[in-house]
C-alpha cells in the first residue's frame, strides 16, 4: 500500500476513541508516518524505537503504562506503534490495523 493511502487509513484509526498517536518507524529509525491528536502533538516518536530495540526479536508487543498503552507490531522492516489511553479496548483496533496491513 502506498504511504499516502496508508496515512489516510491510519488517520481514520487515529480518530477512534482512546487513540492518541500512531507512528510507523523504520528499523533504521526513520519516522515514516507521524500522526497524533492535537492533545498529543508533542509526543516524540524517536524514543519509541529504543523501546522496540529493548524488546529484542519482537514480533508484537503491548505495554501497559500508568498513563498510556502502547501496541507495537513488526511489519516487514517497519514498526507500527499505536499509543492509546491505558483503558482503551485494543482488540478491535488491532484487528483493523491487521486488516490494513494484510491488504
Amino acid at each position: 500500500m502506498k504511504l499516502k493511502k496508508l496515512k489516510s487509513e491510519l488517520t481514520e484509526i487515529l480518530n477512534l476513541e482512546g487513540v492518541d498517536a500512531i507512528f510507523v518507524i523504520s528499523e533504521k529509525g526513520e519516522v515514516l508516518i507521524d500522526l497524533s491528536t492535537p492533545k498529543n502533538k508533542d509526543l516524540n516518536p524517536i524514543p519509541l524505537l529504543s523501546i522496540v530495540k529493548a524488546l529484542d526479536n519482537m514480533k508484537e508487543a503491548e505495554l501497559i503504562f500508568e498513563s498510556k498503552r502502547l501496541w507495537i507490531k513488526n511489519i516487514e522492516n517497519n514498526y507500527l506503534v499505536l499509543i492509546a489511553n491505558p483503558h482503551t479496548s485494543m482488540a478491535a483496533l488491532r484487528l483493523r490495523c491487521d486488516a490494513l496491513f494484510s491488504t
Binding site: E60, I64, K68
Partner: peptide
C-alpha cells in the same frame, strides 16, 4: 531500559507487558 525510556515520555510506570517474539 523500557522504564527509563517511558519516564522520559511521561508514560508512568510499566504495569504489564505482552510480548510475542520470533520464537
Amino acid at each position: 531500559s523500557i522504564q527509563e525510556i517511558s519516564s522520559s515520555l511521561n508514560f508512568g510506570d510499566l504495569k504489564a507487558l505482552y510480548l510475542e517474539r520470533k520464537r
